[in-house]
Amino acid sequence: MTTALRIGHIQPVQVHFDDLDAMGVVHNARYVLLLERALSGYWAEHGWIFNPAQPHFAEIFFMVREFSITYHVPISDVGEAAVHFWVEHLGTSSLVYGFRLLSPGHDVVHAEGRRVQVLLDPATRKPRPIGPALRESLQRLTAVTP
């Protein structure tokens, strides 16, 4: 029996010196930042810039509801890493990203996890439906191979 592989997207990210802790490895809390850098870079490249001055900002006013991560092999150097991410579930007002933090050659999985986000109305801070344009963009990240 074969399992489907999430296609998603692989985004390069930079590991900076200040991401390292006193032991010379990326601090556990910085993995969240590396995912954030990857997602922000990807969405900016696709026209969804996280800027309150942009007219579409209300369409991407997501808040993180849940974040889980499992660490496998520490990242122990500055420079490039990669984040493979995909959309595991796309609901009415929420989505679930799956992700893996990878070595530059994509052969080592440093960590993996999931992040749940909910789209909120900026004025009321209550959940609202994901609009059709963003939904279409998100659906590109849901593809799987047989």
Rank of each mutant, 00 (worst) to 15 (best):
M1I: 13
T2L: 14
T2Q: 09
T3E: 12
R6G: 03
I7R: 09
I10W: 01
Q14H: 09
V15T: 06
V15R: 03
H16Y: 15
H16D: 14
D18N: 13
D18G: 07
D19K: 07
G24C: 04
V25W: 06
V26Q: 03
V26L: 03
N28I: 05
N28S: 01
R30A: 08
R30N: 11
Y31G: 01
R37W: 00
L39E: 15
L39T: 11
L39N: 11
S40V: 01
S40C: 03
G41Y: 11
Y42L: 14
W43G: 05
A44S: 15
E45L: 13
W48G: 08
I49C: 08
F50L: 15
F50A: 15
F50I: 11
A53L: 05
A53H: 14
Q54Y: 02
Q54D: 07
H56Q: 10
F57H: 15
A58I: 13
A58N: 01
I60K: 04
F62W: 10
V64E: 14
S68E: 13
S68C: 12
I69Y: 02
T70M: 11
H72N: 10
H72L: 14
I75Y: 03
I75S: 12
S76A: 15
V78R: 07
V78K: 03
E80W: 06
A82M: 14
A82K: 14
A82H: 15
V83H: 00
F85W: 07
F85T: 04
W86K: 00
V87R: 02
H89C: 15
L90P: 09
G91N: 09
G91L: 05
G91T: 02
T92K: 12
T92R: 14
T92M: 00
S93W: 11
L95R: 06
L95W: 07
L95H: 00
V96L: 12
Y97K: 01
Y97I: 01
G98F: 04
F99G: 00
L101P: 05
L102K: 10
L102V: 05
L102I: 07
P104W: 03
P104L: 10
P104A: 01
G105M: 07
D107R: 02
D107F: 10
H110N: 12
E112S: 09
E112W: 04
E112Q: 09
G113K: 06
R114W: 04
R114E: 12
V116A: 10
V116T: 05
V116N: 02
V116M: 04
Q117M: 15
L119W: 05
L119Q: 08
D121R: 13
D121Y: 09
D121W: 11
T124Y: 11
T124E: 01
T124Q: 06
R125V: 10
K126S: 02
K126E: 11
P127E: 08
P127L: 00
I130V: 07
P132F: 09
A133D: 13
A133L: 14
E136K: 02
E136R: 12
S137D: 12
L138A: 06
L141E: 03
T142L: 08
A143D: 05
A143G: 08
A143S: 06
V144H: 07
V144L: 11
T145W: 14
P146V: 10
P146K: 13
